[in-house]
Design a binder for these strands. Structure first.
Lengths: 213, 213
DNA sequence: TAGATTGTTAATCGATTAACAATC
DNA sequence: TAGATTGTTAATCGATTAACAATC
């Protein structure tokens, strides 16, 4: 029962691309383009037509043979699939350079993610307001997270503190962590963690530059 | 000829993990641990023993049957493979929140990437020094990049300016771009681009939170 | 209708995992 | 030697690409 009657698992890469399609058709609808083919949409997003159709095919049949997809129709479908209407409350721990960047990242406001709490250990920062979010003491994490029923947190603290912070977050009820500290966090079963290591991404790329393709 | 006699292509994911192994064995060597097995190294990096051995196997035979890998030996080999001794000069375009974060990211100083030039359009920022790097006018990009022979650039400008900046960079001789603006850049053949869309990564993760695993 | 484009199946590609003989 | 662990091949898994009948 439920919406997942046909259980072919959707790859994470597909979901990720769906956000790209959504962005694209949202732009197209603004400039009054009515219809787009998978080939055109693929060209605009640097993907193949087959990939576009395959990705959409996981969720239904949105196109019309011979003419393609309705731009506004596809936009609405994608919004429904990706749940853009729901807003996800997020806590941010570590208001350093990167934390501030994420906090002010314009993307958040117009999307499904809303940073509603920020924490730091630095007394000079605590009590201040950044982008409309109050920076609180790390000691209040547990209370605030429970109070506000926050299930997703972003960790932007230094390497040495990341695991400790993660433990605290999980203990407080967080189920999903996006970790920007360059460690692989270990958390209890059921908690979802994604490590985003910017330094490593940069280094990997630069390796491929040096060594050809 | 050259080092790539056996041409089995190394996956980018492998290179990426090599940086993780390097970080781990560097830590281990600091605390005087002499030897580590693929199973132990895998456990510490949340990877399987088979994965560790496979990854290393692309580059040679560094282990000893029955006892594992020499920590310092593996560290040195990985450093050699990843070219940590060489320092790659990098230009950063867009000194906003995220740009500042990357600029100050401690990771850079101790790794192979060195931001040697930063650019912005904001007159209030131009001429200032951030983390020891002079912020220059975007109009000087071409000249500085050629002068300093910079082949890698990081784009942290707003969405609308990214493609324009990319064109300018490529024209100036940049061969590799790490793009943090949420667009898929189109560049001429031969130029390597990696798009890192933090907002999209966040959204993708939060989708999976909402929808179970 | 003829042309265009979908949705979907099959083929391909590539990466991860399992298994095990070789070996210290 | 016996036990442990490697390096590597084969099996599996999963995602991308190609192909094409169905259809507007």
């Amino acid at each position: 029962m439920g919406k997942n009657e046909n259980k072919k698992k959707v790859p994470e890469t597909t979901i990720s691309r769906l956000f790209v399609y959504l962005r694209e058709v949202t732009e197209l609808s603004k400039i009054k383009i009515k219809t787009i083919s998978s080939a055109e949409l693929g060209e605009r997003t640097n993907l193949s037509d087959a990939q576009v159709r395959k990705d959409l095919g996981y969720f239904g049949q949105f196109g019309v043979s011979g003419s393609g997809y309705s731009v506004s129709g596809l936009r609405d479908e994608l919004q429904k699939i990706l749940g853009k209407d729901k807003t996800q409350k997020v806590a941010l721990v570590g208001v350093g350079h990167l934390g501030s960047a994420l906090l002010s990242y314009s993307g958040f406001s117009k999307h499904r993610l809303d940073i509603v709490a920020a924490f730091d250990t630095d007394i000079r920062k605590i009590g201040k307001n950044l982008e409309g979010v109050l920076i609180q003491s790390i000691q209040e994490v547990a209370q605030v997270i429970k109070e506000k029923k926050i299930f997703l947190a972003i960790i932007t603290v230094p390497l040495g503190e990341a695991q400790e912070v993660a433990d605290l977050l999980v203990e407080s009820g967080v189920e999903c962590i996006l970790n920007f500290a360059p460690v692989s966090l270990s958390v209890s079963e059921g908690v979802k963690v994604k490590d985003v290591d910017l330094s490593r991404e940069l280094e990997t790329l630069s390796y491929f530059l040096d060594n050809g393709d």
